[in-house]
């Protein structure tokens, strides 16, 4: 069976660094899973996400997503792959400040022709309305993102990651600025939406209080065997 993520013998070292940041001999994620990837700050969580997103290229090893080997692809091919299959949610949501909420959400569709081909482009309006309705941000669609509250910005970031029905959502500590109450509400909504849109979720965080909500928890220190 084809795995969603299949990492074999991965090694990554930053150019200026003395030793490797990541050395993962094996790591697999299946379709439909929601993974909580735990690691303290500076343990290489974001590096792993960037490798999975095809932005960084490992020096060694095989990184397969949906059966396609990212490490064998050119930069352009990785860009295309990311545009087509992945959704990324940042720690600080990272919305484009000078665009409206709607424009931010549409951006992945407009930037990637392949992402566009995954949806009925004529119904983009409806698709966005549906997602935003679920996220409770329908009323702010035409506002500037800078006018929104933190909670609203976060949900815009989720909508942006989900539009075009990606196979995998990579989330980099998007809940770190929320209080406990909002955190759980937000995660429940995220799980619901991932299920509805058929996306798997890889969620990295150093906050273990939410790990019980995920289908599986992975400690980065368990899979990352750096030999000093």
């Amino acid at each position: 069976m084809e795995h969603l993520i299949d990492i074999q013998g991965l090694k990554y070292r930053y150019q200026t660094a003395q030793q490797e940041t990541l050395a993962i001999s094996e790591f697999r994620v299946e379709k439909g899973e929601s993974i909580f990837l735990y690691g303290p700050s500076g343990s290489g969580k974001t590096t792993l996400l960037e490798i999975l997103a095809g932005i960084l290229k490992p020096q060694k090893g095989v990184v397969k997503i949906l059966g396609q080997d990212l490490s064998a692809k050119s930069e352009t091919e990785r860009d295309q792959f990311r545009g087509e299959h992945l959704g990324y949610i940042f720690q600080n949501f990272n919305l484009i400040p000078y665009l409206s909420v709607r424009e931010n959400i549409e951006l992945p569709i407009r930037l990637s022709a392949r992402r566009r081909s995954r949806i009925d482009f004529g119904k983009l309006e409806n698709i966005i309305s549906d997602i935003c309705d679920r996220l409770g941000i329908l009323s702010v669609l035409d506002r500037r993102v800078t006018e929104l509250s933190i909670g609203q910005q976060q949900r815009v970031a989720v909508a942006r990651a989900l539009v075009g029905q990606p196979d995998l959502i990579l989330a980099d500590e998007p809940t770190s600025s929320l209080d406990m109450d909002h955190r759980e509400k937000f995660l429940n909504l995220l799980f619901d939406l991932c299920k509805q849109y058929g996306a798997s979720l890889l969620f990295v965080s150093h906050d273990r209080s939410i790990q019980h909500m995920f289908s599986r928890t992975v400690f980065l220190s368990d899979i990352n065997k750096i030999t000093p």
Binding site: A53, I55, E75, T76, D79, Q80, R82, G83, E84, L86, G87, Y88, F90, N94, L95, I96, L107, P108, L111, S112, R115, R160, A161
Partner: peptide, 16 residues
């Protein structure tokens, strides 16, 4: 820089 990083992360290519 952040803007560029965002654009890349959400599927923009370096050529774009």
């Amino acid at each position: 820089r952040r803007e560029m990083a965002i654009l890349r992360a959400i599927g923009g290519s370096t050529q774009q």
